[in-house]
């Protein structure tokens, strides 16, 4: 006969009011966080002094506190950790001021990254909600290795940046050609990226489990990327074959 020392205390999802989360799931999430290779590097202890929150840009606007994140992890508050993974970890601006200032040399910003990775691994709804606007960027970065492209910055996507995305009124193609750096004469990527280079990068994504992460978060984006990359690989293979023929 086994005895359970910790009473399972399931909680509901605070965001969507869904069914209670089992204690086993809370524990599994925390185990993933704790076993992250950087966990011990980012968390040493906590004096509860508040320097991290004081310097945190997000804490100025959100009811978000790096000190609270550290405390939740340090005290192994499983419900609190799960709760923080719904909204709070996404408020972090990843500036790492907290880490630069912590007298205990913790990195609350780094801990947030570990929690975000765990949230993705467990496919939490909050992840899907938060990453929806990221689709275009992720497609770009995974297939080309470039995060940003000139043709992504359109007045429709950025009305709040005002009427002056360029103060010179001319077609984007011409404006890009007028940049005196030849590797920048492109619209689809920030700079021209070699075919071979993007395939090497894709191999890294495959080998490091990043594609699996993506599949959990956005399966349709995953499908698109796999198609795009298969095509690129074929193209590269054709080129290699040509070289052999020569």
């Amino acid at each position: 006969m086994t005895t359970t020392l910790k009473a399972p205390t399931p909680i509901g999802d605070p965001l969507n009011g869904s069914a209670a989360v089992s204690y086993e799931k809370l524990e599994a999430i925390f185990d993933d966080i704790r076993s992250h290779p950087l966990y011990d590097h980012e968390l040493n202890g906590c004096l509860n002094c508040g320097i991290c929150t004081a310097t945190c840009p997000s804490a100025q606007y959100y009811d978000y506190s790096p000190r609270e994140i550290v405390q939740l992890l340090w005290t192994e508050n499983l419900e609190g950790i799960y709760d923080a993974m719904q909204e709070k970890i996404w408020a972090c601006a990843q500036c790492y001021t907290c880490a630069a200032r912590c007298p205990f040399q913790n990195s609350p910003g780094g801990l947030v990254m570990i929690m975000r990775e765990a949230a993705i691994k467990h496919g939490l709804q909050s992840v899907k909600d938060v990453l929806r606007p990221f689709t275009r960027v992720m497609l770009k970065v995974i297939s080309t290795g470039n995060q940003l492209a000139p043709n992504m910055i359109t007045p429709q996507a950025f009305p709040d940046w005002g009427p002056n995305i360029s103060k010179i009124d001319a077609p984007l193609t011409v404006l890009r050609k007028a940049i005196p750096v030849p590797t920048l004469h492109t619209l689809d990527t920030a700079w021209i990226v070699n075919l071979k280079t993007s395939i090497e990068l894709y191999t890294i994504w495959e080998e490091t489990g990043v594609l699996q992460q993506l599949e959990v978060v956005d399966s349709s984006l995953y499908d698109v990327i796999v198609d795009v990359m298969d095509e690129k690989r074929n193209e590269y293979q054709d080129w290699l074959d040509e070289q052999d023929e020569d």
Binding site: C49, G50, I51, A54, S65, R67
Partner: peptide
């Protein structure tokens, strides 16, 4: 609160911290 930073607005000193009781 452990103070994170002391700055100045040109007139007085500005203390930045977190009041950890008020959060």
């Amino acid at each position: 609160a452990r103070i994170a930073e002391v700055a100045s607005d040109g007139k007085r000193l500005i203390l930045k911290g977190e009041d950890t009781l008020v959060k």
